[in-house]
């Protein structure tokens, strides 16, 4: 016996109200819960959906909420693995090198004030990239919240702070080592943020590919 559209919506709402806020996680949980309830009903439980659902939740709600935490950890691990994989891409060190050269050329050909001003916008470049991809994705997906998409914000915020560690040294720039750390640091921060933008697009595209058959 298959559950109706209303029954499925009821399970979805129940999980949403139980803090399973991400659509991708809830989707898999709803299917699991619905499949189990259907199996119970097919095995002879004729009391009706709400009674079987209530029994299921009494037995499994704690486990389901714990699963939600596991799902979030999986999302974080997925981001971490995709990020590390992208770092190993030969283009990444080349990008870092190109940015180092670019910043050095900028330092040579502009005043210290202009150089500092350019460095100060480094954090914003990565952040803008993420916000743009996020806004576009949310628009496409009818404002549904997706775990990996939202949790990408954490590494972005971490990397957003990273340039500050290096920009402090731009105050003087009297020594060669200061210049080395400033250019190296800014290039590293920008490289990491650009890699995050790249993996954001890749992860968004992987969601798109998963849902391609859904009308």
């Amino acid at each position: 016996m298959k559950l109706t559209k209303e029954d499925i919506q009821f399970i979805d709402n129940y999980l949403d109200n139980s803090d399973v806020i991400y659509a991708d996680i809830r989707m898999e949980m709803v299917d699991h819960v619905a499949s189990d309830i259907e199996s119970r009903m097919e095995s002879g439980d004729m009391r009706g959906f709400y009674y079987v659902f209530k029994d299921y939740m009494v037995e499994n709600k704690a486990q389901l909420l714990n699963d939600n935490k596991q799902f979030l950890k999986s999302a974080d691990k997925k981001i971490g693995k995709t990020f590390l994989k992208e770092l190993k891409n030969p283009i990444t060190p080349l990008l870092f090198l190109a940015l180092c050269i670019g910043f050095y050329v900028l330092y040579q050909n502009s005043s210290l004030e202009t150089f500092r001003a350019c460095l100060s916008i480094v954090p914003l470049i990565g952040l803008t990239g993420f916000i743009l991809t996020y806004v576009v994705y949310q628009g496409v997906k009818d404002n549904k919240r997706f775990s990996v998409v939202e949790r990408l914000a954490f590494p972005f915020l971490a990397f957003y702070q990273l340039p500050n560690l290096f920009l402090i040294r731009t105050r003087e720039l009297n020594e060669t080592s200061d210049l080395f750390w400033t250019i190296g640091g800014a290039s590293l921060a920008l490289t990491l943020m650009l890699v995050l933008v790249i993996i954001s697009v890749k992860l968004f595209m992987s969601y798109e590919s998963q849902f391609k058959n859904i009308t």
Partner: peptide, 19 residues
């Protein structure tokens, strides 16, 4: 899935989405 050993496909089955 994260290790690239599995691929995922979502389909609509019995009034719900299935992964």
């Amino acid at each position: 899935e994260a290790e690239g050993l599995l691929d995922v496909e979502v389909a609509k089955v019995d009034n719900r989405l299935r992964k």
